[in-house]
């Protein structure tokens, strides 16, 4: 793969915070990355290993999942109409060598 030449390797700017979301609401996980360059951000549910998205492409056929980004810094995974089965660990990863990752727990509460 082609990777843009850069003086700095990508790194996470801040931790991926755990989230508590009410059943049926929207969950937004935000991954903050500095110096992304030509590398790409990927999202995977780390407990079930279900790939969610790579860069701007949603991979899962779960129609409630979308991605959004602000510049090359903020990369978001958005889960609409959160269900009980969405609860678990989500990982944001960058395809550096070695790979860099951080995880957050999404808790779903029933009102």
């Amino acid at each position: 793969m082609a990777v843009t030449e850069s003086r700095y390797l990508p790194e996470f700017e801040r931790p991926l915070p755990n989230q508590t979301v009410t059943l049926g609401a929207e969950a937004v996980l935000s991954c903050h990355v500095a110096h992304l360059g030509g590398y790409k951000v990927g999202w995977i549910k780390s407990d079930s290993k279900a790939i969610q998205a790579i860069h701007t492409h949603v991979i899962t056929h779960n129609t409630r999942v979308t991605v959004r980004h602000f510049g090359h810094t903020v990369w978001q995974l958005i889960i609409a109409d959160v269900q009980r089965e969405d609860e678990g660990l989500f990982m944001c990863q960058i395809n550096t060598d070695p790979m860099k990752s951080q995880v957050a727990y999404l808790r779903v509460v029933v009102p």
Binding site: M1, V3, Y39, K40, G42, I44, S46, K49, I51, I54, H57, I59, M91, Q93, N95, T96, D97, M99, S101
Partner: peptide
Amino acid sequence: TVSWIRHRDVHILTVGRYTYAS
């Protein structure tokens, strides 16, 4: 899409015809 994942570190390796791992 067919993807490959390495369990040791939950690294996404390939997605379709695209090799994500560097």
